[in-house]
Amino acid sequence: MSKKPQVMILGTGRAVPEKILTNADLEQIVDTSDEWIVARTGIRQRHVAEPGSALSDLVTEAARNALQNAGVTADEVDLIILGTVSGDMQFPATACIVQEKLGAKNAVAFDLSAACSGFLYGLQVAEGMMVASGYRRVLVIGGEVLTSMVNWQDRDTCVLFGDGAGAVLLGPSTDGRGLLQTFLGSNGAHSNLLYNAGGGCLNPPSAANLAAQVYAIRMEGKEVFRHAVSSMVGALTKVLERAGLTEKDLDLLIPHQANLRIIEAVTKRFKVPMEKVYVNVDRYGNTSSASIPIALDELRRDAGLKDGALVGMVTFGAGFTWAAALLRV
């Protein structure tokens, strides 16, 4: 089922808030310790947006950086897809606000909600729209300000999340490089294991809901861990099968940066050595849909990706949703 790449990455960009919250800082506000956090998550610090900050500002900065990296102007962009669950408002779509801030006057813009899987879902949607409808310059972005949803007294969740945005600019593939295959999955039977119940029609804004922390992220950590590992391994298996490849063909794996223990469990079961796995969760925490595009930008700008390398990407998020993709760089 291998196919010739039809879309490729022309540029990448990232943006994170200036403020850094370390594990030592968290020790001052909740019953936890650096040792406890590192042992369970691998996280040492995370970037945190100031209260009242707009996600659209982070996303716009990441998108501008991707455009500059590609040498493309904003008015050449004809589609913007933003994966997020923490947009500026319930509506309009934050992507529309980003369109205005960028000056991308010729672009169609919309948000995509798939939690931590939003960026990889967005890649497949973008590819389909480019092939079917002729879009030629497409921004796919993952961005979150999840710390706006955190209960800072819940030590099981507040230590996990950070804020940030990552963007890629896609264009038609001209030289055999690009997106080889994608695989998406979901299972709504487990939507009660990782969720934020506030803000929708079931729990509209009220003093009672605010006092009850209805607007905070809730998670059954052990169950999420179990499903995340099995789903990510399954997604990687499927996407490689579709491409007619095996794990031995991978030059690099970029997993969703949720938790170092999840990453290690996935790579162990999938038999990919850790020296082939990119990890930055220690510096950013779990930035949800932003984690993979942030890592991609770091790799392209700072770590160096050799031409022709086969990169695997895999993620898992609330819903449950999961996804994998193969990219020839």
Rank of each mutant, 00 (worst) to 15 (best):
1 M>L: 05
4 K>F: 04
7 V>S: 06
8 M>Q: 09
17 P>I: 03
17 P>D: 02
17 P>F: 01
20 I>H: 02
22 T>I: 03
28 Q>M: 09
28 Q>S: 12
36 W>D: 06
37 I>D: 05
40 R>F: 03
43 I>P: 00
43 I>W: 04
46 R>H: 08
48 V>H: 03
49 A>P: 05
50 E>I: 03
51 P>D: 07
55 L>S: 01
58 L>F: 01
59 V>P: 00
64 R>W: 06
66 A>K: 01
67 L>I: 06
70 A>R: 01
72 V>W: 00
72 V>A: 06
75 D>A: 08
75 D>G: 01
75 D>Q: 13
76 E>P: 00
77 V>K: 04
77 V>A: 06
78 D>W: 03
82 L>Y: 11
83 G>I: 13
84 T>P: 11
87 G>R: 12
89 M>R: 14
90 Q>D: 13
92 P>G: 14
96 C>T: 15
97 I>D: 02
99 Q>M: 15
100 E>G: 15
100 E>T: 15
101 K>G: 13
104 A>R: 15
107 A>H: 15
108 V>P: 05
109 A>L: 14
118 G>Y: 04
121 Y>D: 07
122 G>Y: 12
142 G>T: 07
143 G>F: 02
144 E>K: 06
144 E>S: 05
151 N>S: 10
153 Q>H: 10
153 Q>Y: 06
160 L>G: 02
160 L>D: 00
160 L>Q: 03
171 G>I: 13
171 G>M: 09
177 R>K: 14
185 G>A: 15
187 N>H: 14
188 G>S: 15
190 H>S: 15
191 S>P: 13
191 S>R: 15
194 L>R: 10
194 L>H: 08
195 Y>D: 13
196 N>R: 15
201 C>D: 13
203 N>G: 03
207 A>K: 14
208 A>V: 15
208 A>H: 10
210 L>E: 14
211 A>C: 09
213 Q>V: 02
215 Y>E: 10
218 R>M: 11
220 E>L: 10
223 E>M: 09
227 H>W: 08
227 H>D: 02
230 S>Y: 01
231 S>G: 01
231 S>C: 10
232 M>G: 00
236 L>S: 08
240 L>V: 11
243 A>H: 08
243 A>M: 11
245 L>F: 11
245 L>N: 08
247 E>R: 12
251 D>L: 05
254 I>R: 07
255 P>W: 04
256 H>I: 00
264 E>K: 09
266 V>G: 02
267 T>P: 01
271 K>D: 12
271 K>W: 04
273 P>G: 06
276 K>V: 08
278 Y>I: 00
281 V>F: 01
284 Y>N: 07
285 G>F: 06
286 N>G: 05
287 T>M: 12
287 T>K: 05
288 S>D: 07
289 S>A: 15
291 S>Y: 11
294 I>E: 05
294 I>R: 07
295 A>V: 10
296 L>I: 14
299 L>W: 06
301 R>H: 08
303 A>P: 00
305 L>S: 07
308 G>V: 14
310 L>M: 14
314 V>C: 13
318 A>P: 08
322 W>R: 01
324 A>K: 02
326 L>Y: 06
328 R>E: 11
